[in-house]
Design a binder for these strands. Structure first.
Length: 627
RNA sequence: GCACCCGUAGCUCAGUGGAUAGAGCAGCCGCCUUCUAAGCGGUCGGUCCCAGGUUCGAAUCCUGGCGGGUGCGCCA
């Protein structure tokens, strides 16, 4: 069964050709490329006649020097109706089509759920929390956005590898580890390890006033030890504690990439070697940048006030961006040399791999990195350095990798209007928020469904789902002010709203199954499709949008598109469920429908349930069957 | 100073050039003798920041302003 919208677009193009052939009109019409014409087909507003419509006559009117309404009428007369379309009307300049409800609904239910797998591989980096303290609500946005994006790209048919970068040679990790010995602290297991360490980090910051020199020397020593890889076990312990939080959110990874391993693999020097082939990379003998290695990006980034980017300082030390360029050359398969080892088994059973000094150079059945595209989920404040890295990939890639690095830039999360700051204590741990979310959800579950056997499971699904949804429903570039009542909202524009709609559909399907009704989607034998009408068409047209929504969200790196769609579908379904006839009585009850109509409606409800579940899944939100 | 992002209902936000700009929350009025009321219907609420421009058509594209946020170091 074919998809209606593309079929209509083709039919309209055909009709336009016929119109032009019949009456070529002015010369302008003869060179009109109908194939290249963008034929917009959209659903009509509720108060307009028809189901789908096209404003295509507007675009043509000028080229053909004809009145748009007359043109619409002419196209209408010559339109060969695709299957599922009952009739066409010219509504002024608009071309509106009326679908045959039964054929249309059945066609929607026959649409394949899985798209064709593309060979294209996308390497997504997200999370990348400094390994020195517990993750907070700012990180939550990164983790949830990255995870949803990975799921969306997979659903869109791409091969996806999720990487989590561990900055194990940085100052922050060094300070936390130094603090343990400095204060003679011992972890007694009552506090989660990353929280315990985070508290020591804050305490160390306060102690600097009194004992700055000693602390500075100690931290420097720890940094050197980290660079040698001597404290790998200690850092791993922190990473494992942080990963517990991610797992609780339903987030998993393919590979941890350790900065110390990237350094040991020589990606910095090898990246610099690649860059130095470029004429735009120079080492000025005099002037402002005398002695430094600089890259002129003006050819790729016109209009910059300062087109020179320092890669290596005049004292010989490399800048961070140079390291980042080397790392990204590896991500897109232009450098090799990391070794890999298993790190953990994740809740789903999938193995989490890690780069490791003593690992294997290759893993049977897996190829890490080698992305056709890399996507970095990073704070919007990093936009400039990200642009430099992308530019470096372009400059060294001969233009073919124009598209090879995307930056999914997200704005900050503030806390009740205040900027988060670890040192000022304005921070909120993800673990704390999860506990509170589940606690609130459990209270609601116990109030609404005291009998529910799966109350704990539902409370987790609802609480964590609400949290994730709050991070996903708006565009990434919007600042989020974290407020408990908004983030843990269990009504309205929220995950529970969608989950509830899903559970409601499940409930109906249970009743249908219990009554012995055989429902097999578009192949439901006993269904009388002709018993369906406009109400079902409206609902099915929302179901039909799923694939476009996924494709659009994937292309734009925009998870909020899926979240908004999930709300739209849930709203359409709730509206259908609650619909009342002219007599004020419910007129869409599946179980109280006549034989045949009941089967067809049940099949549609099944389609709604599936797509609601898929939408939630792609957002990383659980879809309980009862709540 | 330069660059990027934002400005849509009281609040929080959807709206990738098309039909009378839509949701949620907040307010008001209704709907459970039940396929799940965590729901649904109605009502109230708009100079889409301003001014020009492009277009048959602009919240959407362009230019210039205004207001808010962020970034601009031989730091990471």
């Amino acid at each position: 069964m074919i998809d209606l919208v593309p079929a209509l677009q083709d039919a309209i193009r055909g009709a336009i050709r016929a119109v032009i052939t019949a009456d070529p009109g002015p010369a302008a019409a003869t060179d009109l490329d109908v194939d290249a014409l963008d034929v917009v087909v959209q659903r009509v507003p509720d108060d307009k006649p028809g189901d789908y419509g096209s404003p295509v006559a507007f675009a043509l009117a000028k080229r053909l020097r004809r009145n748009p309404a007359a043109l619409a009428a002419a196209i209408k007369d010559r339109l060969e109706l695709p299957p599922g379309v009952a009739r066409v009307e010219a509504v002024g300049p608009y071309l509106n089509v009326f679908v045959d409800p039964g054929v249309f609904v059945r066609a929607v239910l026959a649409l394949p759920h899985e798209v064709e797998r593309s060979g294209r591989k996308i390497v997504i980096e997200h999370t990348s929390v400094n390994p020195n303290k517990e993750a907070h609500v700012g990180h939550l946005r990164n983790i949830v956005l990255g995870d949803a994006l990975a799921r969306i790209e997979r659903a869109a048919g791409y091969q996806v590898e999720v990487q989590n970068y561990i900055d194990d040679t940085g100052r922050q990790a060094a300070e936390s580890l130094f603090a343990v010995g400095y204060f003679g602290a011992e972890h007694d297991g009552t506090t989660k390890y990353d929280h315990w360490l985070g508290a020591l980090y804050v305490r160390l910051g306060q102690a600097k006033d009194a004992d700055g020199d000693t602390i500075e020397r100690g931290v420097t020593d720890v940094m050197h030890a980290l660079e040698r890889g001597d404290l790998r076990v200690e850092v791993e312990r922190i990473v494992r504690a942080q990963l517990e939080t991610c797992f609780a959110l339903g987030v998993e990874y393919d590979l941890l990439v350790w900065e110390s391993d990237v350094v040991a693999a020589g990606f910095l020097q090898r990246g610099l070697d690649v860059l130095q082939q470029l004429p735009s990379v120079t080492r000025p003998a005099e002037g402002k940048y005398a002695g430094a290695l600089v890259m002129d990006v003006s050819a790729f980034l016109p209009g910059l006030e300062e087109p020179q980017v320092v890669l290596v300082r005049s004292d010989g030390n490399a800048m961070y961006v140079a390291k980042d360029i080397g790392y990204h050359l590896w991500k897109v398969g232009r450098l090799e040399g990391l070794r890999y080892a298993p790190f953990a088994e994740q809740p789903s059973g999938a193995v989490l791999w890690t780069s490791a000094p003593t690992g294997d150079a290759s893993v049977p059945g897996r190829t890490f990195a080698h992305g056709d595209q890399a996507v970095n989920v990073i704070d919007a404040r990093q936009a400039h350095p990200q642009t430099i890295v992308r530019t470096a990939l372009q400059m060294t890639g001969g233009g073919k990798d124009e598209d090879s690095l995307h930056h999914l830039a997200y704005e900050v999360v503030t806390l009740e209007g205040q900027a988060m700051s670890g040192r000022k204590g304005v921070t909120l741990a993800i673990d704390t928020v999860i506990d509170e979310a589940v606690r609130r959800a459990r209270a609601v579950v116990l109030e609404k469904q005291p009998e529910l056997a799966s109350a704990d499971e539902v409370a987790r699904a609802v609480g964590i789902g609400a949290l994730r949804f709050a991070m996903l429903k708006s565009e990434a570039k919007r600042v989020i002010d974290f407020r408990w009542d908004h983030a843990l909202n269990l009504a309205g524009d929220s995950a529970p709203y969608v989950q509830y709609a899903h559970a409601r559909a499940c409930s109906i399907l249970r009743a249908v199954a219990a009554a012995g009704v055989d429902v097999r989607g578009a192949d439901t034998v006993a269904a009388d499709w002709s018993a369906l009408g406009p109400l079902e068409v409206r609902l099915a047209s929302e179901v039909a949008r799923f694939h476009d929504v996924i494709a659009q969200a994937a292309a734009a790196d925009a998870p909020h598109v899926v979240a908004q769609y999930a709300l739209d579908l849930a709203t359409a379904w709730n509206g259908y469920y609650n619909h009342k006839g002219p007599d004020g009585k419910p007129d869409t009850s599946v179980m109280r429908s006549a034989q045949g109509q009941r089967e067809a409606r049940a099949a549609l409800v099944g389609g709604v349930r599936d797509v609601l579940a898929r939408s939630l899944h792609v957002l990383g939100i659980a879809a309980p069957e009862q709540m």
